[in-house]
């Protein structure tokens, strides 16, 4: 028995120690460090208590970041789910085109997001990108240098990067729907949009829930696109939470504020997780 205990301990401890040291401890320390004011690697840390929480809450750049993330969550979520449901439906027809799409649709997701950001910064480049060829839109600073347009570009690239996964997800959901249910609906005269609305969409309950959780995770994890596509600009108009953490901590050496932003990040991540579960509600199949 002792031998078995030693075996379990020996197998478990490397993973637990590494995970505890590099993930668990910093997770707790984030809250601790958020209560200090200090610059970069200097030893001098001044305890300021919850003052950082107030400073950050009143920070206008943080407000911009929060609004951007929220808009991205709503617009990105709707676009991603809408388009991927439509594409997943089209993919249900086993054509050659459908097979090709299934092969390549995850490309944007498997290449580094750094590649995605840079690639699209080239496509939006005012001196040789799409807008130069089209002659539209006519903007002095280019698409990426104009507030509003830059946000739209971030939204587009965000969706382009992530959509393959959602198509796959809804494809699996549609496949799982009992064919007989759909046939029965067809026989009852429910087809096309009506059938989708009344039968397919409600039955996609479980994948919809997964999709919402992933959209939240994708939006919260936004970093490389904002940093490399628009450099969070112009004038912070495409700022996001994680890029702001980086900017405060490493460009401006405000480590305490960076940690405080992260604290807000944890709170928001948990709150959004909770809201997502509530919005999706209960399984309509189980409630019957």
């Amino acid at each position: 028995m002792l031998k078995r205990r030693l075996f379990v301990l020996a197998y478990l401890s490397p993973a637990v120690l590494l995970y505890g040291l590099f993930v668990g401890v910093p997770l707790i320390q984030t809250f601790y460090y958020s209560m200090f004011r200090w610059k970069g690697l200097s030893k001098k840390m001044t305890f300021v208590g919850p003052k950082n929480l107030v400073t950050v809450a009143q920070d206008e750049v943080m407000h911009k970041a929060a609004i951007n993330q929220l808009l991205l969550l709503v617009c990105g979520g709707l676009l991603l789910i809408g388009f991927s449901v439509a594409i997943a439906h089209a993919l249900a027809q086993p054509t050659k085109l459908a097979r090709t799409v299934q092969t390549v649709m995850l490309f944007p997701q498997v290449v580094s997001i750094v590649v995605v950001g840079i690639m699209w910064s080239f496509l939006f480049n005012p001196s040789f990108g799409i807008s130069r060829t089209l002659g539209w839109p006519k903007l002095d600073n280019g698409v990426l240098g104009t507030a509003g347009w830059a946000n739209a570009a971030v939204l587009l690239v965000f969706c382009w990067h992530a959509i393959g996964f959602y198509v796959m997800l809804f494809g699996a959901g549609i496949k799982n729907i009992d064919g007989e249910v759909l046939e029965a609906a067809e026989l009852d005269g429910s087809g096309g949009w009506h059938r989708f609305q009344k039968i397919t969409w409600p039955l996609l309950w479980s994948v919809k829930k997964v999709a919402v959780v992933y959209v939240v995770a994708n939006v919260m994890g936004m970093f490389a696109i904002a940093k490399l596509l628009t450099k969070m600009g112009p004038d912070n108009s495409t700022q996001s939470l994680l890029t702001l953490v980086y900017q405060r901590g490493w460009d401006e050496s405000q480590m305490g504020q960076a940690a405080t932003l992260a604290v807000y990040g944890f709170i928001v991540a948990m709150a959004l997780g909770g809201i997502a579960t509530l919005v999706i509600g209960r399984n309509p199949e189980k409630s019957r």
Partner: peptide, 26 residues
């Protein structure tokens, strides 16, 4: 509980712990 601890790591973007992680690695 240990399994739950590992799964918890999947719930948040890991960059959020970057400040203490940076100091630790340093």
């Amino acid at each position: 509980f240990i399994l739950g601890g590992f799964m918890g790591g999947l719930m948040f973007p890991n960059f959020l712990v970057i400040v203490p992680l940076f100091l630790l690695v340093d």
